[in-house]
Simulated scan of single mutants.
Amino acid sequence: MHWRKSSYSGGGEGNTCVEIAALPTHIAIRDSKAPARGLLAFPAASFAAFVEAVKRHPRPAG
C-alpha cells in the first residue's frame, strides 16, 4: 500500500496530518503520527464526494 501525506502536513517530518492510500475500491486513511494504530477505509466514491464538499465549503480561517 502506498501512503501519501497531505500537502498541508507542516514542516519537519510532515507527521502532523493524515495520510491516504488508494485501494482498488476504497480509500484508506490513517493518522500520520500513529500509523500503526490502524486505518479507516471508505468507498472511493464516498471519499471523492467528501473531498468535493470540503472544497466547496472550506473551514473559515482563525
Rank of each mutant, 00 (worst) to 15 (best):
A45M: 03
V51T: 12
A22K: 08
F47K: 00
G11P: 08
V18S: 04
N15H: 13
E52M: 11
H26M: 12
A22F: 11
S6W: 08
I29G: 01
F47S: 03
A48H: 07
T25R: 14
P24M: 00
A28S: 04
A53Y: 10
A34Y: 12
R30G: 03
T16K: 11
A48V: 02
K55I: 09
I29D: 02
G62K: 12
I27F: 00
M1Y: 10
E52C: 08
H2P: 14
I29P: 02
A45K: 05
G14F: 02
A45S: 10
A34G: 03
P24Y: 00
T25G: 10
K55P: 05
A49Y: 02
A28C: 02
T25Q: 15
A36T: 14
I27M: 14
R56C: 11
H2D: 15
V54G: 04
W3M: 06
G10E: 09
W3N: 07
E13T: 14
T16I: 10
V18R: 04
T25N: 13
H2V: 15
A21Y: 05
W3S: 06
K55Q: 15
W3K: 05
G14N: 03
S6I: 09
I29H: 01
Y8C: 07
F47G: 00
S46D: 14
W3V: 06
F42H: 07
G10F: 08
H57T: 15
A41V: 07
F50I: 00
P35T: 00
T16R: 11
G14E: 04
G38I: 03
R30C: 01
S9F: 09
T25M: 10
A44D: 05
I27L: 08
R30K: 01
D31F: 02
K55N: 14
K33M: 05
G14A: 05
P60V: 12
G10V: 06
W3C: 06
S32V: 03
S9E: 10
